[in-house]
Amino acid sequence: MNDKGCETCPVYKPGNLIRHGINMTDFDFVIALAGNPNTGKSTVFNNLTGLRQHTGNWPGKTVSRAEGAFSFNEKKFKIVDLPGTYSLLSTSQDEEIARDFILFGRPDVTVVVVDATRLERNLNLVLQVLEITEKAVLCVNLIDEAERNKITIDDRSLSRELGIPVVLAAARQKKGMPELLNYIHAVASGNYKCKPHRISSETRELKSAVEKLSTRILKQLPHLPNARWVALRLLDGDQRMIDAVRNGELEELFKPDDGNQNLMSVPNI
């Protein structure tokens, strides 16, 4: 028989949640929540929305995408909890869902939750998110555990390096949540202008390839804010991106003077 297919592979099937468009009519802003597994992402989500999802001391607990909503400063926010991933680069379904939502879903803010005790590893994901989107807030969670382990995190220099707001939080104790909300609102409404860090220590080969390709892409799509990411994905052979370039979806998505933030339907991701 045909044993090639992975239709039977028991990956978590998070896909069944995402393949419908998202109705954003009733919301002022859409927030994406990204982060490594086991960083307390779900706890942050629960804190913001008042929902209770089971969160365990295990990697990979959030198996499907959860959605919730809340109001703040008289604005309605919809929050989408993306699958916990270490990276956004592989062909795994979780990572595909996360990166496609951040790019094609065009959330108004992407909140990245990281574990203060493993900040270095978690920054990988943050840097990848910042290649895709300019509007992001970093929530350094589990700061209490970091303190216990004598790790100090300088939120100001972190914010300066990354070019986005940084909040030190302990979601279990509800510490840092008000600040997080303020920053989410500030970035969503455009009051806080992010200057995201872009990856700079590529090998020479890689750098020249990315530059060549992104220059070519910008010639065609001058309004693209993340041509480097598009170039990286094309170099990685990501079919979703190849199709988006080919059928003009990318161009459509980042049309100049597109004042309307609330796209009525998210293209089929």
Binding site: E120, L123, N124, T152, I153, D154, E161, H197, S201
Partner: peptide, 16 residues
């Protein structure tokens, strides 16, 4: 390269 960037930033922002 992403790890290299991350390590640089962590070196600035995190102290043990």
């Amino acid at each position: 390269s992403i790890h290299a960037d991350a390590a640089q930033i962590a070196a600035v922002a995190v102290s043990y």
